[in-house]
Design a protein around this nucleic acid. Sequence first.
DNA 1: CCTGTCCTTCGCCCCATGGCGAAGCACCAA
DNA 2: TTGGTGCTTCGCCATGGGGCGAAGGACAGG
Lengths: 233, 233
Amino acid sequence: MTSPAAFAATAVLLADPARAAMLTALLSGEALTASELARVAGIGAPAASAHLGRLVKGGLIAVHPQGRHRYHRLASEEVAAMLETLGGLTEAVSPARRWPHGEAFRTARLCYDHLAGRLGVALHAGLTGQSWIVPTAGGWVATEAGEVGLTAMGVDLAAARTARRFACDCMDWSERRAHLAGGLGREIAACCLRRHWLTRIPAEREGDPLARRRLRMTPEGARRLGEALGIAA
Amino acid sequence: MTSPAAFAATAVLLADPARAAMLTALLSGEALTASELARVAGIGAPAASAHLGRLVKGGLIAVHPQGRHRYHRLASEEVAAMLETLGGLTEAVSPARRWPHGEAFRTARLCYDHLAGRLGVALHAGLTGQSWIVPTAGGWVATEAGEVGLTAMGVDLAAARTARRFACDCMDWSERRAHLAGGLGREIAACCLRRHWLTRIPAEREGDPLARRRLRMTPEGARRLGEALGIAA
DNA sequence: CCTGTCCTTCGCCCCATGGCGAAGCACCAA
DNA sequence: TTGGTGCTTCGCCATGGGGCGAAGGACAGG
């Protein structure tokens, strides 16, 4: 029997401060070990293990055992989008207890594995405005012009196509507009980081779960992204 | 001090089955009394009162006292979008416990006060594709052509402008694409319902919190929406 | 007024959940 | 094999929170 209020079962997983801290840390897109996550959450190893077990069972995170370590990452794009949205709601509803993201956070950041913030929204607008991608059922597909342009930028389209979704929208809360997720979003972000068009901003204090999500655009990046997509930095 | 895992405070409000049922019921966009919500949640009046108090305090719902009755509605567009997203995540993560929305639910439904589902996404694509709305910082604005076209449809643009946001994106989970929210989204939905281009589908069983969210397009509606926006029903 | 209704507050019980320490596995390195 | 380390399981305790019944305000109608 499916309950009409089915999402409560998922919401309980988000409702604990320790689990929330873990999930927030994983929004950087990096895979973290159980002990790293325990430290981030400020709890002991046994408690962390229990939390991680519930998160895995609930389908929110996935595990990659590697020797003695167990690396954890968010289970999917959907989970990342959900956390981003919930964080934005919290900020909209109660500015007093919003998380401490500064202006840099709104300008450009990682949302799991793709670009968000003003840059992410501008990228979405640029791709659709130039018809490099066009709508289809359940997402977007690349046009011929898009394939040429993206390949010239250095984006690995073959890798992007291996994802479950090639390109789809993800809500950008700080901008109230959609940015690009899916395989294409991932590969564009990877390309920008690989070529040092974007660099991660180091954390200001130790153990900040939002560390490594903030991005800064290099002069080279502003030029290249600008000319490729006609967007203003 | 703002905790990095700030969203946990909001998530606890969603994590209870009774509160989740209440919020789900309010997604229909209607204002409900405390006793109606108690019945929907399957709990007594005292428990419902406590839950509603917490939801109001948390900024998720708003109250309108009216005589002996206290009407409750969702506090904002953001809350509705958040619930929609969380419901979608639950379905993506765990199809076993997804809520029972049939095909009609995916085709056309209300997301609080605006249109969602395939129809909502098609509407968004039609408005942007014909340049009736164009992007701006934090949302969309209507062009001159858009003002003419929308007014001809019967949409009250003056009313739409009284909203906090004129037009912004809202994530459509079943389609993985953005649909239109904000004052314009609200007025378009109101127009379609007023002119009987769309009608609510009656609930199949008593007390279904998803009741009155499902929509069906009338032949007249398909024709009018189709010719106005060039969308396929 | 008094009555019925709607809603809230209060007091109480109960159990689900989160935390830890200790012990037990699993794996790498010597 | 023998440690050393990372992680999990087990047992236990404390607390928070959700539920109800009973009682108390607020409001409409006679």
